[in-house]
Simulated scan of single mutants.
Amino acid sequence: MTQSVDRTIIPPAFPDHTQLPESDGTFVKNFQEHPQSILLTDSLESTLQALHPDGQYAIGQDCGIYWRETDPPERGAEAPDWFYVPNVPPQLDGQYRRSYVLWREYMVPFIAIELASGDGSEERDNTSLSRLPEGVKQKPGKFWVYERIIRIPYYAIYLIQTHELEVYNWVNGRYHRLEPNERGHYPIATMGVELGVWEGSYQNQTQHWLRWWDSEGNLLLTGSELAKLERQRTEAERQRAEAERQRADSAEQTQREAIPKLLAMGLSVEQVAGALSLSVEEVEGLS
């Protein structure tokens, strides 16, 4: 008697970052978003190098974090304006990252930042993903996804129009809004930094910007700011050296003029040297 063997059907593997869309086709909502994201990354570079001497970390800017499979795929992703993931390689198999896929890497982003062009209601949307009738599509809210599914430890919402900053910390399964410290900053203790709002010019825009400070309240500088500071220090040192040279020249000229007058008054070379705090050889050389 011949028995038929049912063939096991193996489901397709979950897609990786090269197989998922890089964008949902929406526009960046204001001109501050891109320079703001660059500013956050640039000024944090030395801190991240100290935290990760092996270089194992990734920064995402308007990149999708895929947390579930959907049709279309981009409905299963959230794209924070800026996020940081510790202890993952900056590239995958030698390729730049096109998105961050949780089911491929498992490491949760440590902090996500949303730059809100509106009143922040979209960024605070706590709509849950519930089971719906067939054919009905509902996209869960950002806040709910970050809090309940991805569980990002720190979530910041910056309201660009009003310069207000909200920072949430994930504790016991829920986000709790943090209070700023005495400097008006929000400490991110594990990273040894503080997040706050700074008014100044960056990339030809004078705005209120999100910036990082160290735990002592010192502003973390960008590469260009560090270079400018170094140029200022070099110029200050040059001016100090030039002033010192001019003082020395002036003192020498005064001594040159004083020596013959003192000698003419009948003082010996030794006496002149003592009066001018010079050696005998210096007096003889200047006379």
Rank of each mutant, 00 (worst) to 15 (best):
Q91I: 14
Y146K: 13
E114S: 08
W144V: 05
Y154Q: 06
G196P: 02
I152W: 06
A189Y: 00
Y155N: 14
S121M: 01
R183H: 07
P89Q: 14
R124H: 07
S130W: 00
F83V: 07
V167W: 03
P180A: 13
Q138R: 08
E114M: 02
N126W: 02
R183S: 12
Y175H: 01
I150W: 09
I150K: 02
E147P: 13
M191K: 02
G135C: 04
Y175P: 09
Q95Y: 07
R177P: 13
L132C: 09
Y106A: 08
G135Q: 00
L165W: 01
Y106P: 01
E147C: 11
G173R: 02
N169K: 11
A112K: 04
S99Y: 09
I157E: 13
S99T: 03
H163I: 03
L129M: 10
M191F: 14
S128E: 13
M107L: 10
G135R: 02
Y96H: 10
L165K: 00
Y106E: 15
Y158S: 07
F110I: 03
L165I: 01
I188C: 02
Y154I: 02
P180D: 13
L178R: 07
P153M: 12
V145D: 12
S130E: 15
M107G: 04
N169D: 11
G94W: 11
Y168M: 00
R148Q: 15
D119H: 03
R98E: 15
Y146I: 13
V85H: 03
E105A: 04
P140A: 11
L102Y: 11
G120V: 04
R124S: 04
V85G: 03
F110L: 13
Y100V: 04
G120D: 08
P153Y: 12
L178E: 13
V171S: 06
D125K: 01
S121P: 00
Y155A: 08
V193R: 00
N169F: 03
Q161T: 10
Q91N: 15
